[in-house]
Each structure stands twice: as C-alpha cells, then as structure tokens.
C-alpha cells in the first residue's frame, strides 16, 4: 500500500518582482522523514521556505504543492499554519509590545485549539521546552524577538515548534549564528518534535553541522532554483569536503 507523502512538491516555480527564483522544484517527504536542502547563497533556499509558507511577496507561477494530499498553494498563510506547516525563520521578526507568553498562547490556540493553550498540560510542555532550550522563565515576559540575541531568537523559534507540534517543520537556517551547544539544543528540539511521529521536517542549511546532530534521511542540493542532486546523509559530508563546484560541473556536463 502506498503511503501518502506528507509533502509533495511538483514543478514549483516562483518569482519575486518578476524575477524567477524557483525554476521547477520537485520534492517528496514521507511521514517521519527529515530532509535537508543545501545550497549556496542565492540558490533559492529561503525562497522555497517562504513560498511554502505563502509569503505574499512571492508569486507562484507554476507547479503544485500538497500537504497530506491537500493543496497548500490554495491556502492563506494562517491556513497553512493551521494545516500543520511551521516555518522557523532565519531572521524572525520582532514585535515590541507583544509578550512572549501571550504570543505563545495565542499561537497555540489558533493552531491547535483553545484547549491546547491552557491547563496544566500546556504549562508543563512550556516549562519542559524552556528548560530543554535553556530559556529562563523571565523570557515569557519579554517582547517577541525584541532585543533577543541571535541564539535566543533561534531557540524561541524551536520552542514554538515544540509547542505547536507541526506536521511539517521547515527550518530556514536555524543553525546559522548558533554555537555548538545551541545547535545541539536545537537538534534535540527537532528530534523531540519530529522523530517517532508522522511529522516531517525540511531543514534548510549552508552547513552540515546541524545535520551531524539531526540525521537527515535525504539531502537535496539546490542550485539556481532547482534541485540538481539528491542523496543520503553522505552527500552532506561530500559537500563539506568538496564544496559545490563539482556539482555545478556535473550539472553543466549533463546539460
């Protein structure tokens, strides 16, 4: 019996200001799988994340995206979030005046229902998550991402992911700007939210450091808006050792 892919992207093309960034992406993630997308700056990694989340600046010009068989591209961003897509931002936006605790309750309530955002179960989950991520209780009274260090921002994104428990977590360079301990902590957070469940994750990264801690099932290499090579975890090591030039040459030779 065939398994319905958690995420299925076919021929996805997207533009911003009439400049085509994604030039035909195909990708399939099965439940319980962790995939990684690697590539140089400007290859379209963050664009992929934003397009999947429905950022209004991007126009999808071709292709389709299904989450659990449902058409994701037909949904507004908040509907995608409620359907189970979570994006951990590379540069999360600050919202001065909105307290972290208040924001978390609103967000969990909007996505998982009012009951999920109150009571001892929520409080315990919050407490455990904060302890695991090394966030002090006073963190809840601070304003969302306002004055946070780079590491605090990333940990806060992961805390949200742990509370929301998405079907599909997209981590856009969550590892950049983190020290080794931070990466390990984030990796534990990803494992806790994804492994052993029917959820999946798409990790977008420059480096293979985070992939040493979150063992991906598949690695995809994105060059100029297209996935040009896919493989197992060994592909990340190869990229670390040899860079991207050899893949580019391979692509050119094939063309």
């Amino acid at each position: 019996m065939s398994v319905t892919p958690l995420l299925k992207i076919e021929g996805l093309k997207a533009s911003i200001d009439e400049t085509e960034i994604l030039k035909g992406i195909d990708l399939e993630i099965l439940p319980g799988e962790v995939h990684a997308v690697m590539g140089r700056n400007g290859s379209g990694k963050s664009t992929t994340a934003h397009v999947l989340m429905g950022h209004p600046d991007y126009e999808v010009t071709n292709g389709n995206v299904k989450l659990d068989g449902e058409d994701l591209l037909e949904m507004e961003s908040y509907e995608r979030a409620r359907a189970g897509v979570f994006l951990s931002f590379q540069y999360p936006h600050s919202v001065p005046g909105l307290q972290v605790g208040n924001f978390l309750r609103r967000s969990v309530s909007a996505i998982n229902g009012e009951e999920a955002a109150k009571g001892p179960e929520f409080r315990n989950l919050l407490k455990e998550g904060m302890e695991q991520l090394g966030l002090d209780r006073s963190f809840l009274a601070r304003y969302v991402n306002d004055g946070f260090s780079g590491g605090e921002k990333k940990r806060f994104e992961i805390l949200q992911m742990m509370l929301i428990k998405p079907k599909l977590a997209i981590l856009d360079e969550t590892d950049s700007g983190l020290d080794i301990d931070g990466i390990r902590t984030v990796a534990q957070g990803v494992d806790a939210a994804i492994r052993g469940s029917n959820s999946g994750a798409l990790i977008i990264t420059h480096y293979n450091r985070i992939l040493e801690h979150v063992k991906p099932d598949k690695i995809h290499v994105l060059i100029d808006g297209k996935i040009v090579k896919s493989g197992g975890p060994e592909l990340a090591n190869k990229l670390e050792e040899r860079g991207y030039d050899w893949i580019e040459k391979e692509v050119m030779a094939n063309e």
């Binding site: 950022h55 908040y78 979030a81 924001f103 609103r106």
Partner: peptide
Amino acid sequence: FYLSTRGLDEEQARAAL
C-alpha cells in the same frame, strides 16, 4: 506575515499588532 505563520488570521494578527 510572521503572526500569520503562527496561525493568526488577518483580523487576529492586526488586533495583536
């Protein structure tokens, strides 16, 4: 957009902001 990715519809996100 950030708030909408956290499940808040436009009205909820505007009110929160």
